[in-house]
Design a protein around this nucleic acid. Sequence first.
RNA 1: GCGAAAGUGGCGGAAUUGGUAUACGCACUGGACUUAGAAUCCAGCGGAGUAAUCCAUGGGGGUUCAAGUCCCCCCUUUCGCACCA
Length: 920
Amino acid sequence: MEQEKNYDFYSIEKKWQNKWYSEKTYSIEDIPLNNVNGENKQKFYCLEMFPYPSGRIHMGHVRNYSIGDAIARYKRLRGCYVLHPIGFDSFGLPAENAAIKNNTNPKEWTLKNIETMEVQLKKLGLSYDWDRKIITSDSSYYKWEQLFFVQMYKKGLAYKKLSRVNWCESCYTTLANEQVENGKCWRCGNEITIKNMDQWFFKITDYAEELLSELDNLNGWPEKVKLMQKNWIGKSEGLSLFFKIVYDSDDKNDKAEEKNVRTATNKLSAKEKNKINTENHLASAKTLESTEMNAETMHLEIFTTRPDTIFGATYLAISPLHPLAKNLLKTENAKIKTEELIRKSLISKELSEKEGIFTGSYAINPFNKQKLPIYIANFVLMDYGTGAIMSVPAHDERDFEFAKKYNIKIVQVIKNSNKKTSPNFNEDNEDNEDDGQELANPFLGDGLLINSSTFTGLTSEEAKKAISLEAEKRGIGKRVINYRLKDWGISRQRYWGCPIPIVYCEKCGTVPLNEKALPLELPENVTFTGKGESPLAKLESFINTCCPICGGKAKRETDTMDTFVESSWYYAKYTTKSRSSSFEQSPFDKKAADYWLPVDQYVGGVEHAVMHLLYARFFIKILRDLGYLNVNEPFKNLLTQGMVVKDGSKMSKSKGNVVDPDDLINKYGSDTVRLFSLFAAPPEKDLEWNDKGVEGSYRFIIKIYKMVVLYEHEHYLTNIEKKEQTKFKELKELPLSPITDKNFFKETNIELKKINNELNVIIKKSETEMEGRFHFNTVISSCMELVNKIYEYNKNKNQNDLNKSGAYLLKHILNSILMILYPFIPHICSECFEILGGDKNIEYAGWPEIIETGYKIDTCNIAVQINGKLRSQITANIDSEQEDILNLSLEDEKIKKKISDISSVKKSIYVKNKLINIII
RNA sequence: GCGAAAGUGGCGGAAUUGGUAUACGCACUGGACUUAGAAUCCAGCGGAGUAAUCCAUGGGGGUUCAAGUCCCCCCUUUCGCACCA
């Protein structure tokens, strides 16, 4: 008998999975028919980051999807209408690399992997609506992406430009800035080099301000991720300022010059100028040829966030790639050195030491008319601000370091207004304010202006404003906002990605495909060499085409899109069932998208904190502005889970510490694997994998199963009298809804009532955990405690405890534990729920309700401290007054030893029902 | 260098609001069952001490009747950014 009742996870899990998938338990309609059935369910969109189909699922997936599934299942128990979809992010390099290595077809390789992983995911028993599956490499998906591209192109949100881009020599493709980590490729770790290439960009910078300011509204996001995005966007406010360049024998009238600048600034916005600068240098940087002299070349535009330090500027520094570099260089020697700096900065962005060259030219500080030397300096970035800076060594670390190295004057113009609050303040400087003696360290903080003409005496803050206004008034500067964020470079010189729907016509130039002509299918008859350019670039049948406008000869764009584009909008696609896609005019039903979005809970790894999560936020704004939906942010709440590690480091083949989920599922069943991955650590922390720990989770599941079977065994299978059997049959038919009649529990065993009281605490605690803190490990451990107590009870109980109300209460407790644990271990809980006579699937049973049995604990344990140290514990009536507790404490043996005389008690502090601290 | 988070038994971790630190699990030790092992069950398990007690939440100060929790300084680790003017 006992043998037959062993926990057969294989059959149990198979049974329930078959039921779920054949009955489509988790498939839902796009928009619920609210109120039709008298229901008015709240919607809940639960989403985990979809996987790249690399071949097999790994522990990271198991953890990610166990977390998401726990939330989705919990929300269903609470009566929500839950959208919980899954798909595959199936464009990407591994497919292509596999093609090169094993001579396979990327599409076949990918589809085979998807098939395998789908089986694996189903084996985990995840509650997905598989009817909504997305495969991004399918043209039914990417055709919409091409449509977005065309529409973005028409609005100027997608554009092509020649630019310095990050190139990975191992992946043979370019990378976006976000995809470069410490100068290395985010995928393969190869050193990045810089190339000049024609590239497609998405104008994410147009949305910089919105992307930044909306972060404040994302209350459900971890602060850490918001901060990372904020830093990445890198907003800074400052002044762009023109310095007149003094070429040979240059002595023009200043007033006339300012007029000249004013016309120049009016003609071009700072942004446009920026663009010109960037493009110019690319065309000419290598040759160092001078450009023609005009208002543009007569002035140097710099950007500073510290206009208040203008009087302390002692030199200007420009990037080696600055378009004016060649105009400014006076000697052959300087030109040669500059060529060297250019060469270096084109190879890598890494910088070992600050290097610079004096150009031989000077510029005039518009505020004090001082002649400042212009340097070419390798630490000045061409692609930030204007590529030129005013250097104030007294108040900037980098300028200071450079000035020291090249013996340039250092002039202090800010002094500390409050010595104590600024740690940077250098005592020695105080007396030397006026004699220009050099500082030992730059003073970086805000303070009071000195040596600054009419601005002397102002605070930094006042001076920033006053000096900026003055510059604007004189037409020599403009207050500007700069962002660190660059436009998103989406061109990839690879095959396995979404083709960019653009052709280049000899007559009409760059032309987007007609929207009706989409999709532009990725050709399949390609050969992979793994060398040089993309296979598409060599495929004549693909390249040669006709112009959509004039019908003449044209060539196709051969770059494909960054695969982060697909993952930027998939969550929106899920909102509409794919069955309607055959006749759809739009990627998704606007009503459905507006109903479901934003995603209520998004779960995924922190590694996507800037890349994917920023792109997705950008893209939903694009979709909004293209009229596809009416939502501002894609993800309302975000949970970033930690990595799964083993022996202290990330699982990897090279370290040989990989654990295959399949092996574990075969050995213990998926409930065990899921339980351990939720129990071993709170979700946001790294999870240390421990094979022995898994066995502990397995034991716990067996314990639950046995407990339920034992209950059944006692009530139906033992040789109790027939009369008794009928009695318990009645019991089986008792409603699940709680019995409110407290008289019913009059005869109930007190231990059971105690357990019920504890259950009630756990129900409440679980609710708060499941609603946002997500520390599943504590919910599970509470249940373990309760299960242990039930075992304890079972061990000690006697025959009389098996009365009707006791049996009912025990059943209620068991059912409640099953419901609380169901989101984590759905198979075994479904099975046990059925064994206990649940007439519906547990997913429709709702959340456990609290039963008051009329039993209230009337005593409590009070900790007794003397001078803050725990000395004893006493049992007292609940809600006792301080005086009673004090007296009771003084009667305690241990306390008596310490306090013989009540008069020595100075005072006592009492925390009701918890603790008393006696001060002597 | 800048920014952020974290540091609790042999290990993963609990203590959500300042109120009995070490819940729960793993490992370990002893015992029962067994020819033996596995499994299971029972008992123990922060350190020192026979005990009374004392010491323990990275280290040092502080606030408080009371600090893992709050404040200041320092150390270590992890993550992010790295010349962004």
